[in-house]
Every structure is written in structure tokens, then in C-alpha cells.
């Protein structure tokens, strides 16, 4: 563990808590993409299959349980409890255009042609594009609530911090995983446009409103 990875995990944790607070306080899931949350649930389920088989640390296990538990609770809030506020018309990204290519790529490019390794690779590739339905929804509605912007900023920062973690681990431990790094770079790049809007607007107290 290093400071970059710890900050990354905390940023990820903060994003999930911000999202849950937004939903619970406003009792609304307006502006939130249910499809992205379903993709995140797939990512966590595929990545944490070893939750019960391999023990890394208390921290690792607690975080995995928390991430899996909260993402399914978020899906419950979107599609059941606050279903009336779910904007399905604007949440229209075709996720099959993500899952099929990512699934194929995981078969072709991986470290080892073994079931658990391919599933893990699939979760890494899927996570890098899982936010697209959410960003697509914001571009369609033309705006994002400020609290949703904070959620996205924390979520985008998490993988950017992981990139720093991999740089650190490369020099400190000689550790390097090309698949995780490339997917992490793609994932962070997808947020750049949003980061720009967040820093130039939200930090000045304005709302994010894209030219619709």
C-alpha cells in the first residue's frame, strides 16, 4: 500500500458515499445513469470473485464488501425505491456496444488464458468505459447537479491516483501491469473533458451546463 493508492481508494469511497447521500437526501436519482451503475456492479462482481477464496488484508476485504454492497444498493435505489425519479429516456446509452467488444478483448488480450484471469481482465476493461453512459446522459440532459459533479470528480480522481500508484510501484517495487495501466489511462482520459468543466465551473460555484 502507498499514499497514492490509499488516496485513490478513499476518493473512490468518497464518490460512492456522495452518490448515496445525493440519492438519500434528495430522495431522487435524477441525472444518475442506472446503466453505469449496472456496469460498475458487473465490474465489482467480476473483479471480486476471489473475495472468499483469497484473503489479502482486512482493509482489502472490507473495501470489496463495501463496494459490492453499495453498488447493488444504488441499483436498488435507482430501479426500485426511487424509480419514479429515474430518467430512463436520457439514460439511453447502448451498453451492449461496450460489453461485447470489452468481452472479446478480454479473451484476446490478457496475462493468462484462464477463466479467473479473463474475468478479471474483463472487469478491468469494462471499468475503463463504465462511466460512458453517465457522461452520455449528462451530455443529453445538458447539465449535471453540482452534487453529481462532485461524485464524478471523485470517481475520476480515483483512477488518476491509481496511475500515480502504478508509477510509484514501478520504481519502488518494479511492479508493472500493462493491462491495468492502459485501461486506467483510457478511463482517466474519458474524464478529462469533465475535469476541465469541473475545475473551470464547479470550483467557481457555477453549475455544469454543456451546450446541449
Amino acid at each position: 500500500m502507498n499514499i497514492f493508492r490509499l488516496c485513490g481508494d478513499m476518493s473512490h469511497l468518497a464518490a460512492i458515499i456522495i452518490l448515496l447521500l445525493k440519492m438519500w437526501k434528495t430522495r431522487s436519482v435524477a441525472g444518475i445513469s442506472g446503466k453505469s451503475q449496472i456496469l460498475f456492479a458487473t465490474v465489482f462482481t467480476a473483479r471480486y470473485l476471489d473475495l472468499f477464496t483469497s484473503f489479502i488484508s482486512i482493509y482489502n476485504t472490507c473495501m470489496k464488501v463495501f463496494f459490492i454492497g453499495t453498488v447493488y444498493f444504488t441499483i436498488y435505489l435507482i430501479y426500485m425505491k426511487f424509480k419514479a425519479t429515474y430518467d430512463s429516456n436520457h439514460d439511453s446509452f447502448r451498453v451492449e456496444f461496450l460489453i461485447v467488444p470489452v468481452g472479446g478483448l478480454a479473451f484476446l488480450v490478457n496475462h493468462e488464458f484462464a477463466p479467473l484471469e479473463i474475468i478479471w481482465t474483463f472487469s478491468i476493461y469494462l471499468e475503463s468505459v463504465a462511466i460512458l453512459p453517465q457522461l452520455f446522459m449528462i451530455s443529453k440532459t445538458g447539465e449535471a447537479e453540482t452534487i453529481t459533479s462532485h461524485y464524478l470528480f471523485a470517481l475520476g480522481s480515483y483512477r488518476a491516483l491509481y496511475l500515480c500508484n502504478w508509477i510509484y510501484r514501478y520504481y519502488a517495487e518494479g511492479f508493472f501491469d500493462l493491462i491495468a495501466v492502459v485501461a486506467g489511462v483510457v478511463q482517466t482520459i474519458l474524464y478529462c473533458d469533465f475535469f476541465y468543466l469541473y475545475i473551470t465551473k464547479v470550483m467557481k460555484g457555477k453549475k455544469i451546463s454543456l451546450p446541449a
Binding site: 489479502i56 473495501m63 496475462h111 501491469d177 491495468a180
Partner: peptide
């Protein structure tokens, strides 16, 4: 083998 190492990350 990098595949073994990375599994200690979330």
C-alpha cells in the same frame, strides 16, 4: 508474474 501481484489492488 505481474498477474499475481496486481490482485492485491481493489
Amino acid at each position: 508474474d505481474p498477474a499475481e501481484l496486481v490482485k492485491d489492488e481493489l
